[in-house]
Nucleic acid binder design. Structure first.
Length: 484
RNA sequence: GGCGGCAUAGCCAAGUGGUAAGGCAGAGGACUGCAAAUCCUUUAUUCGACGGUUCAAAUCCGUCUGCCGCCUCCA
């Protein structure tokens, strides 16, 4: 049973989808006005894992997201970059898709663009006007918050308290200061759309409502986004969607915490952010992904270079275990003698770890705990492989195969491939042959007990960035990462 | 001012009533010619402070302190 924290009720609830075995989820995407930053990527990684875990549990998941490609910012940025708003949006949409591909995030089943759904949005606004939830004022259409009794139910606010904040724009044509635009009048001949109320474009929130309902129905299972979208964005989505359909919009509201820099929220308007591509130049995608998943998704994460370095070391431990298993499994067992006594214990351990992992993920997608269990599993496997008496026989080969399958499967749910791109296998066969020769010469020196010579070779190789290790299984080497 | 969240070892971080996961760093040991890796052992009688409820609280309630988010565009 999966339990998830629903922002609407402020508690963990049992997850029961509208249709058995199917999950329909909508995750707010981004305004394609610039390169994505780590905050966007955290959100994308988070919902990617949620989707993958739901699939692991046997659900058929339909995952929809959006690109906001029409608004004031797009127009302003397009002027800065000297291109049309459409070109700008396409440029950054493509960049985002590159970013998520680099991060091993599976794209949504469909990305909906505002520019391709204007007709549906206009239809929805018309209905809201007919139902008297919205009104027209000088070419703008506003949603009347006072007309919707449940307004504020997601964010736990009421209209009176918010007015006290006095940070809302008082626009003369609004009936109430909290009313928000469904359609905005725009004076831009090239970049605007015809509507019954004149030229303009949709307000910020209506796009998600119209597109989500169009694709997923008036009630769907999961709606996700960052905590910073709870108000006003998601509150307004609920108001206009439920006013329109008379039905519950989304059953479960999930919100991921923000990514902070030195304790402050990373955000474009503050200027304190790292773009995804910047960070990808400094750290492998796998490390960034791992780092983001070591905290529970609802907590804020403080993003820092030292912590990414720590995450690198921690992840490398998991990778070493995977590599060791792979190299052992590449050999054929020489010893045919089996010792079945160890089998039961080991298989029981694997089952127990799998169960713990699932329990962690069932409990509101606790990836931090799940990673802890992956570490425990790695420890058990290491212990097994590194026994003094370890000899690969058919029995152990079987156990390692099982361990490897489980290890990969669980890592896969988290989207971890357990490999670090830069380095190890990125060299030519000539180079590999050369290394073989060098290590052969060093081995000869070792056999002659010429330790100084052997150590000199190792030290000099280390200086050029090649790490040499004498393991019980022979001498191994790998290219060291050159991070700075 | 309103609403919400957080505070757990040197650092990061799980844990929402039953006696503190995991990682990083540190210490000791095994293995090794040495080194690395790996393994074993070890590192919070205690969970921001003070009260309360309970047989039992990091976990529930109250007060206080500190930090953060939202109320304006934001994943």
């Amino acid at each position: 049973m999966i339990r998830l924290y629903n922002t609407m009720t402020r508690e963990k609830e049992e997850f029961i989808p509208v249709e058995p075995n199917k999950v329909k989820m909508y995750v707010c995407g981004l305004t394609v006005q610039n390169y994505s930053h780590v905050g966007h990527i955290r959100s994308a990684v988070n919902y990617d894992v949620i989707r993958k875990y739901l699939e692991y549990k046997g659900y058929q998941v339909e995952y929809i997201s959006n690109f906001t490609d029409i608004n004031e910012k797009i127009v302003a940025r397009a002027e800065e970059e000297n291109m049309t708003p459409t070109e700008l949006a396409q440029k950054y949409e493509a960049a985002f898709l590159d970013d998520i591909a680099a991060m091993n995030i599976r794209p949504a089943d469909q990305y909906l663009r505002v520019s391709e759904n204007i007709e549906d949005i206009i239809e929805m606004v018309k209905v809201l006007i007919d139902k008297e939830y919205a009104y027209v004022a000088e070419g703008n259409v506003y949603f009347s918050v006072e007309s919707f009794a449940d307004y504020g139910k997601l964010s736990g606010r009421n209209i009176e308290d918010m007015q006290a904040g006095a940070r809302v724009d008082i626009l003369e044509d609004k009936k109430h200061p909290m009313d928000f635009a469904l359609w905005k009048k725009v004076n831009n001949e090239e970049f605007s759309w015809d509507s019954p109320w004149g030229k303009g474009w949709p307000g910020w929130h209506i796009e998600c409502s119209a597109m989500a309902m169009k694709r997923l129905g008036t009630t769907f299972d999961i709606h996700g986004g960052g905590t910073d979208l709870i108000f006003p964005h998601h509150e307004n989505e609920i108001a206009q969607s439920e006013a329109y359909s008379g039905e519950v919009f989304a059953k479960y509201w999930l919100h991921n915490g923000t990514v902070n820099l030195s304790g402050e929220k990373m955000s474009k308007s503050q200027g304190n952010f790292f773009t995804t591509r910047e960070v990808l130049k400094k750290f492998p995608a796998e490390v960034i992904r791992f780092f983001l998943l070591t905290r529970h998704y609802r907590s804020p994460i403080d993003f820092s270079i030292p912590q990414l370095k720590e995450a690198t070391v921690s992840l490398e431990r998991l990778i070493k275990t995977a590599d060791q298993m792979e190299s052992l499994l590449a050999d054929n067992p020489e010893d045919k003698q089996n010792n079945l006594a160890t089998t039961d214990v080991f298989i029981a351990m694997l089952k127990e770890k799998r169960k713990s992992f699932e329990e962690a993920m069932d409990d509101d997608f606790n990836t931090a705990k799940a990673i802890g269990i992956l570490h425990e599993l790695a420890g058990e496997i290491n212990k097994f492989i590194n026994q003094q008496s370890f000899k690969l026989n058919e029995n152990k080969y079987f156990l390692l195969t099982e361990a490897n399958k489980l290890y990969r499967k669980l890592a896969n749910v988290l989207g971890l491939k357990l490999e670090l791109k830069d380095g190890t296998k990125n060299y030519s066969s000539v180079f590999a042959d050369l290394m073989e020769l060098v290590l052969e010469l060093r081995q000869e020196a070792r056999e002659e007990k010429e330790w100084e010579k052997a150590d000199l070779i190792r030290d000099r190789l280390d200086e050029v960035g090649i790490e040499v290790k004498d393991t019980p299984r022979g001498t191994e080497w790998n290219l060291k990462k050159r991070d700075e």
